[in-house]
């Protein structure tokens, strides 16, 4: 903070100093410091000033003679240098971006199937269901040996499963179908589970089953499971639902 404040007000002052050939600059300096009411700030600012301009000296040394032309030339030189570095940075950045772009392109190309497969895909897709080119990106590459051993007859190829000629280890699958199959599988599993263990089936609990043996055993043991989470499932659910409805109702009434 202390260093920043004089620097902000210094820029016009330094330009003035160049014109007044140094002597006034130190006066200004002192005046400035007094003006700010911070005698230490001037001393602290001085080395920083030296860094910036280089032609300012301490009070005890005699100021160097400096013509206006040389100072101007130096300033111009400085300006030019700054501009040049900015330009160089810009070009460097540009080059970097370009390289990255190229890398991305190459990666994309690598990720995509080889051209022959793409061609085959498009030819296979055309007669059947129209398949948008966007879907090609969806194809999931999976290495499956058993599938690649099948013949590559393009007539046999379904729309969903297009097999490549050149690289046999790839099988293209549509993720949508996979999800559908999974959901069907889950539904089937749920059906079997529901009809075996669902409501209405004559099932006992594990605890009761184990207690049958325990009742007849000469040495009685504790139940296998003390806590039964199955108790009151319905009432717990009802309570939950009631709470939700109550909250909604409350919110509606408060709005009004």
């Amino acid at each position: 903070m202390v260093q920043l404040r004089p620097r902000a007000s210094r820029t016009p002052a330094s330009a003035e100093a160049m014109v007044d050939e140094g002597q006034a600059a130190s006066e200004e300096e002192v005046e400035h410091g007094l003006l700010l009411g911070q005698p230490s700030s001037g001393a602290a600012a001085e080395p920083l000033e030296e860094d910036e301009e280089g032609d300012e000296e301490f009070d005890d040394e005699a100021p160097e003679e400096l013509t206006f032309a040389s100072a101007q030339a130096e300033a111009r030189e400085e300006e030019r240098r700054v501009r040049e570095t900015v330009r160089r940075d810009k070009t460097l950045l540009k080059e970097k971006r370009k390289r990255r772009e190229e890398l991305f392109l190459e990666q994309k190309k690598r990720k995509l199937l080889p051209d022959t497969i793409l061609e085959q895909l498009s030819t296979a897709a055309q007669p059947g269901i129209k398949k948008s080119p966007g879907k090609l990106k969806e194809v999931n590459l999976q290495k499956k040996s058993e599938e690649c051993e099948k013949g590559n007859d393009s007539k046999k190829v379904k729309v969903q499963k297009v097999q490549s000629v050149s690289q046999k280890s790839y099988v293209a699958l549509r993720l949508k179908d996979q999800d559908l199959r999974d959901s069907r599988q889950q539904a089937a599993q749920a059906f079997i589970h529901n009809s075996l263990y669902g409501p209405g089936t004559n099932r006992t609990t594990v605890n009761k089953f184990l207690s049958l043996d325990n009742k007849r055993a000469p040495v009685k043991k504790a139940a296998a499971q003390f806590l039964n989470t199955a108790w009151g499932v319905q009432s717990k659910q009802n309570a939950k639902r009631f709470k939700k409805r109550w909250m909604v109702r409350r919110m509606k009434t408060t709005k009004k």
């Binding site: 263990y197 004559n202 099932r203 594990v206 009761k208 089953f209 184990l210 296998a224």
Partner: peptide, 9 residues
């Protein structure tokens, strides 16, 4: 056995 699905009553 304690972790198995419930048997028929």
């Amino acid at each position: 056995i304690a972790q198995l699905p419930p048997p028929i009553k």
